[in-house]
Amino acid sequence: MTPEYRTALIELLYQLADDNFILAYRGSEWLGLTPHIEEDVAFSSINQNAMGHAAIYYQMLEDLGEGKSDDLALLRPPAAFRNAVLLELKNGPGNYWDAPDYDWAFAVVRHFFFDVFKSIRLNALKKSSYPPLAAAAGKIVTEQAYHLMHWETWFVQLMMSTDEARRRMEKALSLCWADAGGLLSLGKWGAVMAEHGLTATEAEWRDQWRQAIGQSFARVGYVPIGEPGMAHGDGRNGEHTADLGEALSILSEVYRSDPQATGW
């Protein structure tokens, strides 16, 4: 492994781990607060899967000598995170334990955008030049069809029902669209990743994502304005909002609480 290959690989693994970790956290904040009990159960399965995937990628980083996987998830500063900014944004005003005014439309659109992207990325990673990653992607991608179906069902039903739902969904769509570009970014090491066959190129998965999302938009008669943006910066390069810092302090509160502790 050349130093350049190693750097690009590590950057890519952080993108994968952090995306899943942060979105699983945002999803877990919804626990007990979703529109109905059946959704609480289903959504929680999806979040557990994502958290499990994050753990797999952090373990790969640990195996590469980056440090203990729990430390990687919980002790890095926000600027070291490589997740797309879209995934770190708060679910809405309030906290999950106190007066949450969470936006279900935002949750649906964000997860739908992400899961369409996650499928494309996993399919590309099945051919990755890094064998452990290719093997993991092949395994993970099999669950992906169910998650996609889940969010696509929500997306279509809410877009095609009441006027209020449509209005809320369109608002969420424009919010998510403004940062969807950050999902599709590979960051400053992207060209090296593609060159070494670690992933597909950024242009390839951008096209695939646009096409897949375009089909769903056509089904519900929605036309986005402009191209997916990076309104809050490119998380792949360490640019983040204050929402991430806040999330990380909650995620690591117990882990940090006793520096002498060797086990939990």
Binding site: S28, L31, G32, D40, S44, M51, D70, Y96, V254, W264
Partner: peptide, 29 residues
């Protein structure tokens, strides 16, 4: 318990408590 789901100390504990609280909701359902 759900107050502690996002705060569970390690990745392994986070996964376990997510599954546990999900089960409780499933029982409720």
């Amino acid at each position: 318990e759900k107050e502690w789901v996002p705060k569970a100390p390690t990745l392994r504990r986070k996964l376990a408590i997510m599954a546990k609280v999900q089960d409780e909701m499933g029982h409720g359902q």
